[in-house]
């Protein structure tokens, strides 16, 4: 199982994403100017400030050569995870519905947040049971992972929002009292209708070691590994 982690000019969380992915499999960086995904089984579009966040967060990165390949990879059913700026890029690329707007508090905010795992049966959360194993998939487990962003207010229009809820595309919600950015319906992470593309604003890659207080983020990467290897069987 090999993860490809995209690096744009202005990315800053790609090394943590690489290290997190390496806890569950192989991982390699993918340069934004190249189209080669280097045989990756799953792609991570990491956090940061791709292309300086010029114009709008993710607006320019979405047209980079590597994203052409990532978009094709996603259309073929490949697993794509977008974290923070990566989530913004995936929305701009229309791989995910909606958009991320400036935080309602107008501040860059960095804090540990509790997230409700609304769905524990997705390719990105299937290892997020309370025991971290395959057997238990409680419908509501909680992940404690950090969020740090200024543009994290998830928005979708009324119709899209209704469709998201109806199709079960909301995977993570901010727990009660944790929605500091004003996201609609407390949405912290959504997937596409097909279920192979997932984006979230908080950073699971920063919560994979006791050193930083939580290892809850690891289950996102472990889930992707399970999904990829399960698909091979």
């Amino acid at each position: 199982m090999k993860f490809g982690v995209v690096r744009f000019p202005g990315s800053c969380d790609e090394v943590d994403a690489l290290r997190a992915a390496r806890r569950v499999g192989d991982a390699e960086l993918l340069w934004h100017g190249e189209r080669d995904l280097k045989g990756a089984d799953a792609i991570i579009v990491p956090g940061g400030f791709s292309y300086g966040d010029y114009l709008r967060a993710g607006a320019i990165a979405r047209f980079s050569p590597v994203m052409e390949s990532v978009i094709a990879f996603a259309r073929d059913g490949g697993l794509v995870l977008g974290i923070c700026n990566g989530f913004q890029v995936l929305c701009e690329a229309k791989l995910l519905p909606g958009a991320l707007l400036p935080n309602a508090n107008l501040r860059f905010t960095f804090r540990q947040v509790d997230l409700d795992v609304v769905r524990g049966d997705t390719a990105f959360t299937c290892a997020c049971g309370s025991d971290g194993g395959l057997s238990a998939h409680p419908p509501h487990s909680i992940l404690s992972i950090p969020a740090k962003h200024s543009w994290g207010r998830y928005y979708a229009d009324e119709q899209q929002l209704a469709a998201l809820e109806q199709n079960g595309q909301v995977v993570l919600r901010y727990a009660l009292g944790e929605n500091f950015n004003g996201s609609l319906n407390d949405i912290a992470g959504v997937r596409n209708e097909r279920g192979n593309v997932f984006g979230l604003m908080p950073h699971p890659e920063h919560a994979v070691d006791e050193l930083t207080g939580s290892t809850d983020g690891l289950c996102i990467f472990a889930s992707m590994r399970l999904a990829v290897e399960g698909a091979r069987v």
């Binding site: 707007l101 400036p102 935080n103 309602a104 508090n105 107008l106 207010r153 928005y155 004003g182």
Partner: peptide
Amino acid sequence: RPKAGILDPQGEAV
């Protein structure tokens, strides 16, 4: 500009 009806915290702050 932000679409009408979408929360515009910058506009509100000004």
